[in-house]
């Protein structure tokens, strides 16, 4: 990580995305304001070339929405996404097609991420030609290369998704994403649905492909073990905001934010001798519709001070590459 040139590939500035809830008739009559799920609540983040940045957080913290907003599946409410000098949030159609091609995604569910009515070969063939990656003549060779790259047999091309296991489907998903020569790859819980032995295979594959293709990966996961293995840097998300950002070593060995500490403490240790009986944290994630005032973690924080309930902390740089949104670290 340290010797890599820190060229910024994607610069995200103050990104917001919320999903309005439909108002009930009573709300309408009583003129209550319409509510919205604040999935992404003001995120600024630089993603460097060739790095693997992991985004961790509990379900409902907005990490998937954040990824989908970056990649233009959702239109951002406000904020900028600067990808190689272009703002994806306001790009014309022709340039957006190229930009989109360079940002690809691997999905979570190996069973719903492939079109059940299309053979693997047809699927790859279609995208290769759509994005003019190769000519019709070269397509078959290219498809074989792609399948070989993810360690699948050639006869895979004629077969349909239902004929494959979860791990094989995830390989196919990776081949689909890499077929169009992307620069930036989002892996949204890409190994969460897989068994441990298969998960390790896919992690290895992703790592070697990153090196050979010069990929930048945004790795979204709730699995702190997997993240520790694959990530260069880690961003911890809580209720639509990033609350800690640092290198993997920094975050895992000296976490700053109380929430990060709790997350790491909650992780079941494999050592049966360590059976503590007090849960690290009580209660659940508050609803992203009514985000608590002040620090958003104040309602669950074990060391919350009175001002935490009123003032929202900034994002403080604690040392090189390691920042945190907690009043304790105010400069």
């Amino acid at each position: 990580m340290s010797d890599k040139a820190q060229n910024i590939l994607i610069k995200i500035q103050n990104l917001h995305k919320s999903f309005p809830l439909s108002r009930s008739l009573t709300d309408f009559v009583l003129r209550r304001p319409s509510k919205a799920v604040k999935a992404v609540d003001g995120i600024s983040l630089d993603i460097f070339e060739n790095e693997t940045l992991a985004l961790v957080g509990e379900s409902g913290c907005g990490k998937s929405s954040f990824a989908r907003t970056i990649i233009n599946l959702y239109k951002p409410d406000s904020g900028d996404i600067i990808f190689k000098g272009n703002n994806l949030a306001s790009l014309d159609k022709a340039n957006l097609k190229t930009a989109k091609r360079e940002c690809q995604m691997i999905f979570q569910d190996p069973y719903s991420s492939l079109n059940p009515r299309m053979s693997i070969g047809d699927m790859l063939h279609e995208e290769l030609l759509y994005h003019h990656i190769c000519s019709k003549k070269e397509a078959q060779t290219k498809i074989n290369e792609l399948l070989d790259m993810v360690n699948l047999n050639k006869d895979t091309a004629e077969r349909f998704p239902s004929e494959f296991s979860g791990g094989q489907r995830q390989r196919i998903g990776i081949a689909r994403a890499l077929a169009v020569n992307p620069k930036f790859l989002i892996a949204d819980e890409a190994v969460s649905a897989l068994d441990i032995s298969i998960q390790a295979q896919i992690l290895h594959l992703l790592q070697s492909l990153q090196r050979s293709h010069g990929l930048t990966i945004l790795f979204i996961s709730h699995d702190l073990r997997v993240v520790h293995y694959i990530a260069d840097r880690v961003a911890v998300m809580y209720l639509g905001k990033i609350i800690e950002l640092g290198t993997t070593d920094q975050v895992y060995t000296s976490p700053l934010h109380p929430y990060t500490k709790i997350l790491l403490d909650s992780l079941p240790s494999v050592d049966p001798r360590k059976k503590s009986s007090v849960p690290a944290i009580e209660g659940n994630l508050p609803s992203p519709i009514d985000i608590p005032p002040g620090c958003r973690f104040s309602t669950r924080c074990p060391n919350a001070k009175p001002h935490c309930f009123n003032d929202e902390p900034g994002f403080y740089k604690v040392n090189d590459d390691h920042s945190c949104a907690c009043h304790e670290y105010i400069a």
């Binding site: 441990i196 298969i198 390790a200 295979q201 073990r225 520790h228 694959i230 790491l264 992780l267 050592d271």
Partner: peptide
């Protein structure tokens, strides 16, 4: 095949599928 956390690494062994 299980990715280890820093405090769990008893031996310096890489994750192996």
């Amino acid at each position: 095949a299980l990715p280890k956390l820093p405090q769990e690494q008893t031996r310096n062994e890489e994750m192996k599928p």
